[in-house]
Design a protein around this nucleic acid. Structure first.
Lengths: 116, 116
DNA sequence: TTGACGTGATACCATTTGGTATCTAATTAG
DNA sequence: CTAATTAGATACCAAATGGTATCACGTCAA
């Protein structure tokens, strides 16, 4: 019934996104699921540290890990990302008019420049 | 000239969003600009603590504070929120097909239920 | 001018966080 | 079986974080 079955709340999701290493991991997993070692190879950091990040990301529901024989594959859970995006879009009505005003100002500048 | 004039990078913005109190403040400021004391009155927390949160939010570019006589008004900067939303939307292509698949499954359930 | 009020800044404390080092368990290859 | 590899779990450390208490400064009103 619930499209996001895990117990990740908005808080743990934003927390998972609040670290640059973890956002980089999100981007990496966007290219396909990876083992802990594969992820760690991209960072100047021990495997244990990367594993900790992955645990935080799992708690935030943005990553799901799945044991596969000897290794463990970590893949992105985009639905948690969507929930964070949805929260931010509550405020779209605030930035929409701002962008419109900005665009208008730019257009006026262009008009002056072009001597239209 | 710059639509986001402050030096707030994505990192500081996500950090500013990673605390439930601060996200609540974002929602509060959505209703209009408020003084530190007005914000603090809504929390079981000292004014100094709220001020600290507001400083973090300023660093993240999501709040702009403006002295007004004896008090200081804090208002939302929605453009920083938009930048965070834009980052998340990089991954929309991952959740889009997921939602489509989910919708299809729901439709099939409905079909079975309706004996259409 | 004097006092009250709202604010900013600082010092300090407890907890959390990001990281390493290390140990143990499980799976694959020889 | 044995050894190598991959992963998970702890213990521990330094730094950052969230909070309070407190002080000093500018502004408004009497």
């Amino acid at each position: 019934m619930n499209p996001v079955p895990d117990g990740a709340n908005l808080q743990s999701t934003f927390r998972a996104l609040a670290d640059p290493t973890r956002r980089q991991i999100v981007a990496m997993l966007g290219d396909g699921e990876k083992t802990v070692a594969q992820v760690a190879s991209q960072f100047d950091m021990t495997r244990a540290a990367v594993k900790k990040h992955l645990v935080v990301m799992e708690a935030g529901g943005i990553v799901a890990s799945q044991p596969r024989g000897r290794e463990t594959l970590n893949r992105l859970n985009p639905l948690a990302l969507k929930r964070a995006a949805d929260w931010l879009h509550q405020f779209e009505r605030f930035w929409e008019p701002r962008l419109a005003a900005l665009k208008e100002a730019v257009d006026q500048d262009a008009d002056r420049g072009e001597r239209k």
